[in-house]
Amino acid sequence: MESEALGWYGVPIAVLGGAIRVSTPFLFVSLGECLTERSGRINLGLEGVLVMGAMSGYAVSFLTGNAWVGVLVAGLAGMALGLLHGLVCSLARVSDIAVGIGLMLLGTGLAFFLGKPYVQPKAPTLPALHLGDWSASPQIQAALQINVLFLAGIALAIAMAWAFRATRWGLIVRMVGDSADAARAMGYPVAAVRTLCTAAGGFLAGVGGSFLSLYYPGSWNEGLSSGQGLMAVALVIFARWRPLACFWAALLFGGAGAIGPALQSVGVTGGYYLFNAAPYVLTLAIMIFTSSPNRTLAGAPGELSVTR
């Protein structure tokens, strides 16, 4: 790629740049999942929501000529799928984990079906902010090309952390997630709050998907997502359900995903597929080290089925 001039020193810079580029979908999906899980449900289907968001965002950007309308529609499509998950899970004795698996299949199926006509055409994509122009090095310039959505994600993480801690709404969501009985005793509708949180989480995951198709890699095809939606679910556990920690975890995951391409650019091609598996191995390793068979995880919402 762009690291030839710097040789091996280019690898960490390319990883950093890649981390910033690749982390945005992780950030949005994990914030959405964080909101859903804080309310006491897990949505494993965000992988399907992500792909659906990528497809609808790209299609609408192509049809309207405005990438930002695409981002909005991607969010709305994700919200619709999140709402579906939330409503089905509100039925008695329906497992949220199983519905998530169903949503994963439904979301990717719908996206592949509806997205077929948009594989070829070129849609307008999101603009980048060139924050690296002070440097003469093209590597650093490339690494600091930042998308507005990345900054929006940071702002959102801060806002969510504040809202969970200091607002009435945040307290309601946390209470519903920690003890449904307490929430019911206080007169709050548990299923409705959870459904709303899942729908809002779906919106964020849809926006994260639109980043994939509208900025980086910046096109729509059926192999666009490779499990980012699922890894984001594990990422939230790693981040202990704290929005700000989600941001750092997303950067870490983005960096892990950038190792393969960065090494390839300096001529290390031998274990290409193995390096591409780095994010999954990292996710699994983190889950192994942070989980425990005996106690529930620190910071886990009390009603969450996945940690019990």
Partner: peptide, 27 residues
């Protein structure tokens, strides 16, 4: 085993293992 000995959620774990398996297979 990850589920039983380490408490790793088996749904997420098995799907991650699938991605790793496909990467190994391609390699």
């Amino acid at each position: 085993g990850l589920r039983h000995f380490r408490g790793v959620n088996e749904t997420i774990g098995s799907l991650l293992l699938t991605y790793i398996a496909i990467a190994l297979f391609n390699h």
